[in-house]
Each structure stands twice: as C-alpha cells, then as structure tokens.
Design a protein around this nucleic acid. Structure first.
Lengths: 233, 233, 233, 233
DNA sequence: CATGAATGAGAGTTCATTCAT
DNA sequence: AATGAATGAACTCTCATTCAT
C-alpha cells in the first residue's frame, strides 16, 4: 500500500506539477511579453525573445496564442485592472477630508499599479495606440474612463462637502491622470535608459503634485486674479 | 540685353528649381518620417512608406539617409528645438507677475511646439527611448534639461520676488512638464485614434492646470495642514 | 524486451535521423556554395541559389551562416586541405628516385585534390583574392606556403641525392605549382564553358609537364648553353 | 589678323581639345573598367566607380556603352591583342636556334603583354568565363588558339630542325601557356593583395621555366627512363 | 504537449539604368 | 554632350509561423 501510495503520490504530484506549470505557462508568457513590449515596443519585440524569457520554446508560444497580435491583445486584457469596482466601494466608504482622499487615492494607485510591473501597460498602450486602435478604444473604455470617473467623483465629493473649489471638475481630474502618466513615462521610458544623477523620486513627485494642486503656489491668491483671459472666471 | 537677361533668368530659374527640389528632399523626407514614426513607431514604419509620403521612391530615401536608423536620428536632431537660448532671453526681459509668466510660458510652448507637428518628437522619444538609449540621452541633454532649467528659473524668480511659495522647486517644475507630456500624449496617442465625444481641449486643459497649480484647490488652506508626511512646513 | 528495444530503436533512429539532417545541412550548403562561387564568383551568386542547390529554402541558409560573406569564409576554411602534415610523412618515407617522387607527388595531388570538387577553391581564391585580402592571406599561409615547402623539400632531396640538377629550387617549385594552377583553370574556367573538340586531358598534361621538366626538350643540351643571361652556368 | 587668328586658333584648339577628349572618353572608360573588373570582378564593380575612375559621371558611361555588360564585352574586345599576325611574321623571319626562339617568344610576350595592364584581361576572362561563355569562346578563338598555334609552330620548327625533341607538341605548348597564366595570376591575384617578403620575380620565373623546359632537371637522363606508366614511351 | 528546424513573405538596402535639366 | 537625381527591380537578411518529430 505504501508503495502504491508512493507511486500514486508521485504520479499525482508530477501530474499536479505539470498541470501547474502548464497552467502557469500563459501567465509566464504574458509577463514576459508585457516586459518586452513595454521595453522595445510591439514591432521590435521578437516572438522568440518572449518565449525565451518565459523559459519555453518558440513553438510553445504559438500553442497558447495564435499569433503575436493575439498575444499583444491578451497582454493588454490581462493587465487592465478591473479593480475599479472594488476601489469605488473603498472610496464610497472613505470618511476623511477630500484632500486626504486625493492623497490616499494616489497612494493606492502608486502602490497597486504605478510601482508594479503592470504600470508598463500604460506606456505600451500610449506607444502602440495608433497601431491597435481597437485595443486603444478598449483600454480607454475599461481603464481610462472608469479611472477618470472615480477621480471626478472624488472631486465632486470635495465640492459637495465644501472642501474643494473646482471650477472645471472634468479637466481637474485630468491633472491627476497627468501625474500618473508622467510617472509612468519616467519609469518606463527615459528614466529607464538615461542614467541620471537625479532619478525621479516617485513619492516625492506625487507628494509635490498633490500638495501643489491642493494648495496652489501663490502666496496671496488675490495677486493672481488679474490673470490673462483664460482664468477661471 | 533683355533677351540675354531672359535667358539668364531661365537658366537661373531652372537651376534654382532643381536646387530647390534637391534641397527640399531631405526636409520632406524628415517631415514624412516624423509623422510616421510618431504614428506607428520606428520599427513598424516601413522605409517605403516614408518615401511614398514624401512623394519619392524607395531608393531616393537612401540617397539622402544611409539607413533607416540614420533617418531616425536625423529626425530627432532636426526636431530638437534649440530655441531655449532665445526663450531664455525672452523670459529674462519679462516684466509681469510670476503667475503671468508661468501662463505665458505655457502659451508660448503650446503655440510654438505643442500645437505643431514637432510635438510628436516627444511621443516618439518616449516610445523609442529604450531602443535608442543614446538618442534618448541626447534628447535629455538638449531638450529636457534646458526646458527644466528654464522652468526652474521661472519658479525661482517667483520665489525671489515673494510671489510664489514653492517648497520643492525642482519637482514643481516637473508638474509643468507633466502638463506638456500629457497633452502631447493626448494629441499623438489615444486622442489620435479613439474617437471621443469629448476630445481634449488643449487650451482649456492648460488653463485648468496652470490655474490650479497657481491657486490650489482647497477652499480653506488651513483644512489642508494636517496632510500626510511630506507637507510644506 | 523486444518491444522496448523496438521502441528504443525507433526513438534513437528518429533522433539520429533528425540529428543527421541537421548536421548534414552545413556541409550540403558549403558544397553548394563552393560549386556556385567557383562557377559564378561570390558577388554573382545569389544566396537563394545556394540554398536551392542544397535543397533548402532561403531562410535556412541564414540559420547556419550569419551572412553570405561568412558563408564564403566557411567555404574557404572547409576546403583548405590540412593534408600537408600527412603528405609530408608520406614523402619522408618515399624510397624511389626523385623523378618518381615528383611524378608521384603530382599523381597524389591530382587524385586527392585536382580531380575533386575541392580544386575549385583555388579558382575561387584567385578570382576573389583582391575582394577578400584576409582570406587570401589565410590561404597563402595555410595552403600555398605548405605546398610550396613540400615541393621544395622534394627537389632538395633530389639535389642532395645527386639525382637532380636544380639551380633555382624556389622557382623550380613554382613550375610544379604552375602546372596545378593551369589544370585547375582549365577545369573550372574556360574548359568548363567553351565546348572544345579537344578538351584538356589532365593526365596527359601532367605527364607531359613532368617529363619535360625532368628531361628537357633539347636534343643536345650543349646547343643550349649560349642561352641568355640567367642560365645555369 | 593676329587677333582673329588668335581667336580662331583658340576656338580651333578648344574644339580640337574637346574633340580629343571626347574621342578619348571611351578609351578612358575602357581602361578604368579593365582595371576595376580585374581587381574586383564584373559583378562587384559598380558602374559609378568605373565612371569616377575615368573622371566622368555615371550618366556619361551609359552614353558610350549601352549597358554594363556591353562595357565588359568592349573591354575584352579592346584588349585582345590582334597582334598575332604581326608576331607570326616576326617569328617566321627568326633565324636563331629554337631554344632562343622560345626564350625570345616569352620575352616578347612579357614585354608587350605580361608586364602591361592588358595582362589583366586574362585574369578577368578566367574569373568570368562561366558567366560570359560567349565572351570566353570569343577569347578562346581570338587569343588562346592563335597563341597556342604560334607556340606549336615554334616547337614544330625546333623538331623539324632537329633541335628539339618534343613527343607531344600540343601539350608541350600548354607548358608555355601555363607559365604565362601563372605569372598573370601572381600579378593580379594573390600577389596583388598578400604582402610577401618574396614577391614573385617575373623574369627570374620565366627564365627558370624556360631553361628547365629546354634542358630538363635530371642529371643523367638515363636514370629517368624507368619512370612510371605515363612516361613518353 | 513541447520542440526547434524549416519556411517564405516581407523589410531594408543596393545599384544599373533613365531622363529632365 | 554631360550630369546626377530619381527610379525600381533585385538582392540580402529577418522573423512570425508551421509542423514533423
């Protein structure tokens, strides 16, 4: 019995391991593909490189994805965070000031997305949008719009509670997005290849951006009122 | 004499025309290449497309640029604005408030770069930086650093004149850069391929960003003082 | 057991067959390339032709050789006979007369090189020397010089044994080389394309050359003594 | 009158000069082409190089020769010495010994062909024969055969006069040809690109070859009679 | 399932040839 | 006649994709 169990155990284990590996394959391939697409772009990334980085052979890649283009789509699909649902709830329950809410929002984004490998997807989409307009539209729909909506809702809450003065909520939400985009570009583009003596400190950058947005730069706001045409009225 | 003049004129004109064509070629090719590289990326752009868009045949491209890669480098070289010298002087003579100076700075950038075809170079560099690290370094050196320096000087002037309160001048300058980067990405990436019912209005965006930066969003700044760690004072 | 053996046998065979094919490829390609380079020259030979003659597709060629030029170098490397070591020994043990030794030497060369496909390499090198000077130098070093050394040693032996009278051993060795060169040119150049009613009979040619060299043409050597300048005294 | 004469003179002179240059053009082009074809081969020589070496522009080349291939044919045609007629007569009148006649023949060849640029044509033909079989046949017809005939006639005269013992006149003539071929290859191939400490001394080589041929190498011809199968009976 | 040798369409590049000037 | 800018067929080389093993 011990023997049969051992054998059985081994077989099962082996099978399980292989299953696990087998099931892990697509994920490993997607990770490798994400990294390489972000680094070199879609066209400049060779299928074989992706396979090699995932530790499999060229042929195996095409076992899981029918073409390089489908691999690209899967990479995007895999990395769009469908987490907005969850976040929305998180923020609906938020009790602090709106300023803290904005700060918290960025902190969460940074920790769960910006800092992680997944942030590369944004650079990838931006770089490849015009070669894959349907993917771009999909990303717009699934990631950008929900994110933008969340930010708008946060700002609206601030206005509703009388904590914030936001003349143009829609575009103000873009400011926060711009922050994220800039950080991502720093991380995955120039920052990743130009050795600087002053690498961008993400948290310092975010803090600076948030605090400036929240408080403004002018010492005496009234100095600012004569601003040219396109002032907020 | 009239005759000889006429003949002379024709010859000159002829020569001039040919010369003009020959001299125009590289520029036309660079323009075509910029557009296509921005749109599709370096690797996904075919040499023949570039030639076709410039109205010449494949072979002609290689008469002017020894390789696709050299064409790329030439595109970047051609489009780095060495305008900072001139801008610096412009801003040294500026007499208005620092807030207006910031506004004016963005306006100038938008009109002379952001709005023009040349803005694409930024998207191009960001997309290709890691494939052409030396080009990226060159761009960093020749465009990013001088731009950043100019912005820092403007902010410093505001601080010196007591008009601005900027705890972290270096990173505050990045905020302005982020604005530009975001606009460019909007223009050349998603914005260029995803048909939206609300296309990004650049001037509205810039205005919103500038005014928010300058004035802040909080209604009562003191509400803001309990903000997390890296607050000013 | 029979079964497992059969399976084992099959697997081995399969593997072996694939291995054999893979290992055979470079050789087949080199053979095809040699023939074509000899026939048409390096520049006029298309990669695809080489591949086709080796029975594979264009792409396969570049799986084994990184470029057409590397293929050329490999062809030369593959076809330089490092046989001089072995030949030297063979001739050290030779016991007959020096005249027979010369005859034997040519016979051996003809049978092992001149008659074979490898002889083409000489025509190839001669045709391409000035386009590939380093290859030419390599050939000079590895083939010409050792061959020349061997011939000189044979003649020296004849002089030492009192069988031959050779006033200028170095240049006399060239006479034998000239014989080989002429034959090769006949075989791979004019002779291969001009249909003659009298094709060159290699053995008759070699025999004629050797015997004439050994015996001379003059009926009464003394008639010859008034010959111009550089006569043997 | 002096003036008009001067002017006239100038005009005529100018015209004449231009005419002369114009008429010289094809020749200059042929010379340039010969050099380059010999050096690099037909396929590896660019038309533009030929034009440049002749001091004209690419277009001009095609004004005189309708295609690169026609240029090649013209080069060959231009450089086949139709001098055999003249040589034949020269040798018919020759009065010395046959040995001297052979020596004289080689000397003349060396001075009028071997030493000159025209010798390259032989290397060219040998290299390209199989790409241009009709040219090769033409060369065979016009150069090789007459040369061979001349040599045969010289040897025959020696036999007729009892001065030479030539069992195989046809093939013996090849020996002399081999000499020329070897020298030309030395000059235009390896010798032209491999720097040697012992460059081939053409006259020493010719002398060695001729004297050896005439006199033989064996000290006692009778030692030679037991030679292997392929002896002359 | 996994492999990697083989494929061949397609991209970059060259260069003989043309033709407006 | 002479030029040299322009052309595009043809060549070298790449790489996504296939398929026998």
């Amino acid at each position: 019995m011990a023997l049969s169990k051992l054998i059985g155990g081994r077989v099962e284990e082996t099978q399980a391991k292989r299953e696990r590996r087998k099931e892990a394959r697509p994920g490993e391939l997607l990770d490798a593909a994400l990294d390489l697409f972000v680094e070199k772009g879609f066209a400049a990334t060779k299928s074989e490189e992706v396979a090699a980085r995932a530790g499999v052979s060229k042929g195996t890649l095409f076992l899981y994805f029918p073409s390089k283009e489908e691999l690209f789509k899967a990479v995007v699909r895999e990395n769009i965070s469908g987490r907005f649902q969850e976040w929305n709830q998180e923020f609906e329950r938020f009790e602090g000031s709106s300023a803290d809410m904005v700060r918290y929002c960025m902190k969460v984004w940074w920790e769960r997305v910006g800092m992680t490998r997944a942030s590369g997807i944004t650079k990838l989409i931006i770089s490849e949008a015009r070669n894959f307009p349907d993917i771009a539209a999909f990303y717009q729909q699934e990631v950008i719009r929900p994110g933008q909506d969340l930010l708008r809702r946060i700002l609206q809450r601030g206005v509703d509670r009388g904590e914030l003065h936001v003349p143009d909520i829609e575009y103000a939400a873009y400011l926060i997005t711009a922050s994220m985009v800039f950080l991502i570009m720093g991380k995955h583009s120039l920052g990743a290849c130009v050795p600087t003596d002053h690498p961008l400190d993400a948290e310092r950058y975010l803090s600076c951006h948030m605090e400036t947005m929240l408080r403004g730069l002018c010492t005496r706001p009234e100095d600012n009122d004569k601003g040219a045409g396109r002032n907020r009225k």
